[in-house]
Design a protein around this nucleic acid. Structure first.
Length: 224
DNA sequence: CTTTGATCATGG
DNA sequence: CCATGATCAAAG
């Protein structure tokens, strides 16, 4: 099975999404000769990488949407038997320096979340990775209310960072989007603005969507 | 070395 | 039980 090429239209993308709904990750891995890990202890990104490949997303760690031509970002969303998200959703790296003049309107968070293809995967821990079933993927763009909530959390936390208070930030902040560590381990450091405006070393951070927010997106899509 | 893909795992 | 803090592999 050859590597799928990037979908040229949204219709083509959604056709592929519908085609894999109901299949397991193991089905796809076999079909596309992808590895099938027994557990995700050492390959936490496996579901996302497999789904990207199968749907024809551009590979790699580039600052562009997964489906560059369509401007769409792919996010797999692990859910439990009740359809609730099991994990927060990583969005992007948090900028910790050169924050002068930075604004929500130009932020990486806003860009990344402008148009998202959510792909739910039934991923309870007692289901082997290969046996996890893919659900119905759907396109989403934030409503004005959702945008506003994201903007509030972004501005509140970015302001703390700009004021040199990054080390006061914890995962408890934010109503719908939080900042948490995003690194290989807790010894990794990067530059940040410290107290008195001096550059300090701190743990790299990422923005994550809280499960209450992604759950509301699922409700909006599947309840009504 | 950094970003992207995320999930793991323990303290509260 | 669950969210926060910690962690892992691939790829550029």
């Amino acid at each position: 099975m050859i590597k799928p090429s990037p979908p040229q239209t949204i219709a083509e993308l959604m056709q592929r999404v519908e085609a894999i709904s109901g299949l397991t990750l193991g089905d796809l891995a076999t079909q596309y000769q992808f590895k099938s890990p027994e557990h995700l202890l050492r390959e936490k990104g496996w579901p996302g990488q497999l789904l990207e490949y199968v749907l024809g997303a551009s590979a790699g760690s580039k600052p562009v949407p997964d489906f560059e031509l369509l401007g769409i970002e792919l996010k797999s969303l692990p859910i439990d038997y009740a359809g609730k998200p099991l994990e927060t959703t990583y969005v992007s790296v948090v900028p910790l320096t050169n924050l002068t003049g930075i604004r929500w309107a130009n932020s990486t968070v806003k860009k990344k979340l402008n148009h998202v293809l959510w792909l739910p995967v039934l991923a309870e821990r007692d289901i082997l990775p290969v046996d996890r079933t893919i659900g119905s993927g759907f396109l989403w763009q934030p409503s004005s209310a959702q945008q506003a909530a994201l903007q509030r959390d972004w501005e509140e936390q970015i302001e703390l960072i700009a004021l040199g208070r990054v080390d006061e930030i914890s995962g408890h902040l934010g109503q719908v989007m939080q900042i948490r560590p995003k690194a290989a381990n807790s010894r990794v450091t990067t530059d940040a603005i410290g107290p008195a405006g001096k550059i300090i070393k701190t743990l790299p951070r990422g923005f994550y969507l809280k499960t209450n927010f992604t759950q509301s997106i699922l409700m909006q899509e599947f309840k009504a």
